[in-house]
Design a protein around this nucleic acid. Sequence first.
DNA 1: AAAAAAG
Length: 741
Amino acid sequence: MPKNKKPAGGRAQNFEPRYGKKTSYQDAKRRPGQASAGTAGSKSPSHRGYRPEAEDTAPTKQRWNAQERAGRAEARGIRAHAQGDRPARDGRPARRDDRPARSYDDRPARREAQPRDDRRTFGDARPSYRDDRARRDDRPARSFDDRPRRDERPARSNDDRSSRSYGDRPRRDDRPARSSDDRPARSFDDRPRRDDRPARSADDRPARPYGDRPTRSFDDRPRRDDRPARSSDDRSTRSYGDRPARRDDRPARSFDDRPRRDDRPARSSDDRSTRSYGDRPARRDDRPARAFDDRPRRDAGDRRPAGGGGNRSDWHADTKAKAHRDHVDVVHEKLQAEAVQAEATEGVTFGDLGLGENIVRVLADLGAPSPFPIQAATIAPILAGKDVLARGRTGSGKTIAFGAPLVEAILRSQTAGKRREFGRTPRALVLAPTRELALQIDRTIQPIARSVGLFTTQIYGGVPQARQVGALRKGVDIIIGTPGRIEDLQAQGKLNLSDVEIVVLDEADHMSELGFLEPMQRILRLVKDGAQKLLFSATLDREVAALVDEFLVEPAVYEVAGEDQDSGTIDHRVLVIDHRDKAEILTSLVDRAGKTLVFARTRAYTEMLAEQFDDAGIHAVALHGDLNQAKRTRNLERLTSGRVSVLVATDVAARGIHVDDIDLVIQADAPDEYKTYLHRSGRTGRAGRTGTVVTLITRQRERRMTEMLDRAEIDAPFDNVRIGDDLLEEITGRQVDPVRA
DNA sequence: AAAAAAG
């Protein structure tokens, strides 16, 4: 059927509602309450339906009374709800339409934004979690007056929030300003550490505190004695002291004439002694350094090569010496990169980098008037046709860094006549690990593409194919999607990848992990021979070696000098708690103004937590792979739009997802991998904003956590916390009484 | 355990 015949064609530019509706019908079928008229086949509903006559025996009744009374009430509530006779709450229209499916995952009405104050906990009406999950919908009038706690507190409306200007909080006098002046003084006064840390970034570049971060002196950090030695020595090895400063040989920002790595002095082992790459023969002399292959390890302990030579002071001196050069090679997790000094990118415009006028204009509209360092680093080489690997801290602007030059490149490569040809095959492919990320990338790339007459389409699973196939048939230039559906459509002959000239792998290291690697390899084998490959990630490391070795040719590797996660604008904290306090502490942490993202390890736990928060009167929605796509999209959108301020997610939301203003990330379950830690944390503190990341662990996990932070190169104080501790208030409120702070 | 194709 022709695509334009799809209902979506005319009616719903946004297909999500349509899918949502469909799904809800499906879901509704399973709902007991649906049997309001007494469905023959369904036992329980039929009981209800025929209760007066047929089965009205005492035992049955009693069973209901004992166990199912609430359930029946729920069924009534659902029916009432469906009939629309449920009074709108808060003067808002009844919400049934947008949440018809009441399946377990569909967090019903209560989750939607409503003023918190008029919600209440459920108390006795809800005997058990399981039961009340099913019953949430019919929770009757919520006179939330019985929630004293919140009321005693200062109102937490958004207005108050604004008053939370951190400025009036006492600064940490003993600590050099961390960066922009607008950065709230973090009143974690009880944290003695860090005092001796140099300013974290330049004061004059608040929005982009990138590479200007002075070298961290690890030596003099006294705190965290309980932690295993951080082996600063190993870290130290990151300095390639004896390499000539590159500043001199690449003055202008034109990257094309940038000296290739090959003309550098051989990166012998001596340069990077402590990193223990030394014994590896140069791979290909003409190739930019790529230290992929020799690092098998992903283990905690051995992340840094043992015996990392160089003593601490050597390293320190060495690092200092290099700190002021324009270009420093930095080995970050085994991947050597050309480090671009942030300062060197100042004053450079997108136009200078080779992007056309239209694109530059759209970028400005997208809020990127001038390039961020990672963008300044990668755009020109991408336009020059190189295979590029790039590592840019979370929230540093990677999407534009590949998206804009991608559009420019295919624009240039296309012959004018062919541009809009019906049924043309796609020229570029962007792959992402999650559908939400694919959607988000498209939101950035699409306007850029459209500004020059190119079309994008999203190809991802969880939604009907027809619309996507229709778009393909019509002809698109850029495909953005997830691997499964792309392979699926390709196998069906509905997607021809053979003309794809540029492939982008966002979150490339993740895409190289176990479940993703093979699909990625299959897809990459389908694209045009010699297609340009771009691999991006905040945690780009040798995990991508399998792909790099097979598919990339002399890739250039870029990152921003001095930029790592800990150089950002995020405060990290670890709360060591009693397991039995966990639920309550979590609730008190999310009970705040401001957007909060909570990570949990399993889908079920995200649901449970969202439920728990909801019951405490804090709107929360869940995001995980068990939800249908409509709900996923919708729940994420709720956070984005601010209709809800708490999102509880699995790692589906760990990477790439950008939501403005998430100022607190809570890890209800600590991640197992440092990379996961970095990505989850990176949902806050984006584009230079501040944020806090709190990880809850039990005492038994302290050691592991320490090691993981070590691997992540993140500095976080550990605090023992119990229910009601002031520290919790401090973290959530940021509006702590200055006296106390 | 989660994610990515349906179903």
